[in-house]
């Protein structure tokens, strides 16, 4: 469920990035690469878990699934917070600078 949540986040971010490209005012490319990186890593984790559990991997207990989905959503929220911090620091549109400095 965590893998699936992060893959969907990566796909949505990639579509949004493609719509806005080549402009990178919102740093959506960074966000999508972050989610793709995490998705690939969880994919490897899933392969090793499948090798250990076999077909049981595809039939988790409902409580585990819910917990994993909750974790997946929390991971997406954490990823978005990291992205917001990067966006505020890099400030490609100059919004933060515009708030901090008054033009004369």
């Amino acid at each position: 469920m965590t893998l699936l949540t992060s893959v969907f986040a990566a796909i949505i971010c990639t579509i949004l990035w493609y719509k806005k490209a080549p402009k990178s005012e919102m740093k959506l490319g960074t966000l999508s690469l972050m989610f793709w990186g995490a998705s690939l890593m969880w994919f490897v984790d899933a392969i090793f878990e499948y090798a250990e559990l076999g077909v049981l991997y595809f039939s988790p207990a409902p409580a585990d699934m819910l917990n994993d989905f909750f974790l997946g959503l929390s991971v997406v929220a954490f990823g978005l917070i990291l992205w917001l911090i990067i966006l505020m620091i890099k400030d490609p549109k100059g919004v933060v600078k515009g708030v901090l400095f008054r033009k004369q």
């Binding site: 992060s6 960074t30 690469l33 972050m34 989610f35 793709w36 990186g37 995490a38 998705s39 690939l40 890593m41 991971v75 954490f78 990823g79 990291l82």
Partner: peptide, 8 residues
């Protein structure tokens, strides 16, 4: 990808 993935 590496920093984002390992961070998450």
């Amino acid at each position: 990808m590496l920093w984002g993935g390992s961070g998450l």
